[in-house]
Design a protein around this nucleic acid. Structure first.
Lengths: 239, 239
DNA sequence: ACAGTCAAACCGACTAGTCGGTATGTTACA
DNA sequence: TGTAACATACCGACTAGTCGGTTTGACTGT
């Protein structure tokens, strides 16, 4: 239902504002500890609007996870590292990009779906599935580059492109937990460095990072600072 | 209806039972979503007993995190891999041991403090600190072996033993999140495999795992099955 | 141009139930 | 007789969700 692609945008969109508020609040306080009233307050919207757009708080969580998938897909697909011709450089550039995103408050760079799935995996199947889809979908994007790199570099191994892609996500999620525990992004950055080193070793790229970054299309390591925190955009109405 | 056990209460220890119940429930449902009443029910104890032993729910969380530190310290210090003479084998054996612990339900092998800190890092400073201490303390144990291995193997590197130790914890915590998202331990095991391969590469141990495991003191890979899930013991009264 | 119609969007007081926490016992034992 | 260790009843605050009503704006017929 909802008939989402209507040519008219009747309202500034309480729905979008609620999704955006959920990004901030759930990452900051967790899902269970975030009351509906507070989501409404942050979004500048009333409770009536909330339950007009979402059947329940859980339904919002599912929508938020789906929206997160779309927003992050958009962010990473348009990121500059993605234009690298060498697929391995795309993989390493991806990690540099992730590292560059570790700025500001912890809640601003951590992962919504990773936070949520941790809390609800055993009690809210639908939310868990939406989070799983988000993580797996993101991993699939990385997997494509890894698989291509394996071909180009002639890497034959016991590990699969998929398992390595999932491993990158595990490292990132774990790095976020350590960042939360320690109160800052430094540990997370160090962990990404280790992951990068691992991938270099797997592909036998012994050169230091510098050389990788000064290649002809050296777009890997830089920051699209303007959008370090993915925002819910109006285009993210479903997912 | 109460009348629930022997009128004699020699010293069954409501406190210990509550801590043990918190291990199970918080790992299963998260901290915020675990009501005090349910903790009491699981522990077979009344609410009065709860607030007799803990000033607040938050105080229980701090105690649980400290208890977790002690229980896991005891578990890993007595684990067989720890007797390896070669420090590198201890590190790799640690990973094999962690992998072997990935049995049963997800809530039975995931980390209490990792789960908790994710939820409360921004709102409950004392709990966060207790979780941080638990993770860092555990990492320090791994760090000692890594540092020794670096000496023995003459490894000089940009990375420190500490950062690699923290990285192992990041991988494990992240592996737990993926396991929660996917509903089983397989992804987590694969991620530990990648971490193991990384460390082998760092130490230039090119031999396959088999050879490592068939060495003279090949205790690395086995399971202390009887205690895969750390239990709160009576000795864990404070921490 | 304009009154009428309709449905979606939105509002906010209200409720039923849950939550963490307390007040006041009761029991076992030193 | 005192004290630690419980047990039970209860409280006020909070929470997700409801419901009757109002606003908004697109569309229609005249």
């Amino acid at each position: 239902m909802r008939e989402r692609s209507q040519p008219k945008r009747p309202r500034p969109g309480a729905r979008e504002k609620l999704l955006e508020a959920s990004f901030a609040l759930i990452r900051e306080k967790g899902y269970s500890a975030t009351p509906v009233d507070e989501l409404c307050a942050k979004a500048g919207v009333t409770k009536g609007a909330f339950f007009h757009h979402f059947q329940s708080k859980d339904a919002l969580a599912v929508a938020a996870a789906n929206c997160w998938s779309e927003v992050s897909r958009a962010l990473f697909q348009t990121a500059p590292y993605h234009k690298q011709r060498d697929p391995l450089y795309r993989v390493l550039g991806y990690l540099d990009f992730r590292k560059a995103l570790l700025k500001g408050e912890v809640a601003e760079f951590t992962c919504l779906v990773g936070t949520m799935v941790q809390e609800v995996y055993g009690t809210h199947a639908e939310i868990r599935e939406a989070c799983e889809a988000s993580i797996s979908g993101h991993a699939a994007m990385v997997e494509a580059d890894i698989a291509e790199a394996m071909k180009v570099y002639g890497v034959r191994a016991k590990w699969s492109a998929q398992s390595l892609a999932l491993h990158t996500q595990a490292v990132l999620q774990g790095a976020f937990i350590l960042a939360k525990a320690k109160g800052g992004p430094d540990v997370a950055a160090a962990s990404i460095d280790h992951l990068r080193r691992y991938i270099e070793l797997l592909f036998k790229v012994r050169t230091g990072r510098k050389r990788l970054l000064t290649g002809p299309q050296a777009l890997c390591g830089y920051i699209a600072r303007s959008s370090s925190t993915p925002k819910a955009s109006a285009s993210c109405v479903w997912g």
